[in-house]
């Protein structure tokens, strides 16, 4: 299977602080790949580098064979990035916000089609025409997931997609992500909720202090460490 993402010996420094320390991994097209680790492990930094927001200190990152250093604008045409705890423009309605984003991806009827898809994914009912400032955290996240996936990106990069959500909202968003992959989108997500990642991802990488400490299929890792779940695997690995 072709690689959607290839990361080799990635290092990222912020001044004297090394946030990512020699990370290598690959994500195949059409899979859901999870980066798992505690807060401050370097997950968000890796996602931001792949999303062309941060620059590489050293190493190589390729998205569908495009280099993040040289071909950032090409990569931006194929990806959709959802930051953790993101918001939207508060003076716009949910529909207005989706239209604002859709305008970057087409004109006329195409925009209408994208917006309709976003509204369907967000599933906010009549509230889609209310101002974003009136949305609850769960509604906001659903709107943003709708925004991220409505364009059918080749690669969706989702940073803590269900962070801070209640069980029902989190479950709905997980289902949306799963159904997106069926339409051909590759998903790279980060989470510190290891049970969630076990449910969603076909492959995972465990990160601690900027380094990948283990990688593989959740079932294989559980078997390898004789653990009941990925949380136990992680605890065992960083011992």
């Amino acid at each position: 299977m072709n690689k959607a993402i290839e990361v080799r010996d990635l290092i990222k420094d912020f001044g004297k602080i090394r946030a990512v320390d020699g990370v290598s991994f690959g994500v195949s097209e059409g899979e859901i790949f999870g980066l798992i680790g505690p807060n401050g492990a370097g997950k968000t930094t890796i996602l931001r580098i792949i999303s062309t927001l941060l620059q590489v200190t050293s190493g190589e990152v390729k998205v569908f064979n495009y280099d993040v250093r040289k071909d950032a604008s090409e990569i931006r045409k194929m990806i959709s990035y959802l930051p953790e705890d993101a918001g939207a423009y508060k003076n716009l309605t949910g529909r207005g916000y989706l239209r604002f984003i859709a305008n970057f991806f087409g004109n006329g009827k195409k925009v209408d089609e994208i917006v309709d898809k976003g509204i369907k994914i967000a599933d906010l009912g009549e509230r889609i025409d209310d101002k974003v400032s009136t949305y609850s955290k769960g509604m906001m996240r659903r709107l943003l997931v709708g925004r991220a996936l409505m364009i059918d990106p080749k690669l969706a990069i989702l940073d803590e997609p269900t962070s801070g959500l209640d069980v029902i909202n989190a479950q709905e968003i997980r289902n949306i992500i799963k159904s997106t992959v069926k339409r051909g989108t590759t998903v790279l997500l980060s989470s510190h909720n290891m049970l969630e990642v076990e449910f969603l991802c076909s492959n995972i990488a465990l990160i601690n202090e900027g380094k990948i400490v283990e990688e593989g299929r959740p079932s294989e890792l559980k078997e390898k460490y004789d653990a009941d779940n990925i949380e136990d695997v992680f605890t065992e690995v960083i011992k």
């Binding site: 927001l53 990035y81 930051p83 993101a86 918001g87 991806f105």
Partner: peptide
């Protein structure tokens, strides 16, 4: 920056 809408904007296909 606070709402992270800038991050979203910077990953869109716009100069």
């Amino acid at each position: 920056k606070e709402n992270k809408t800038l991050e979203t904007l910077l990953t869109l296909p716009v100069k």
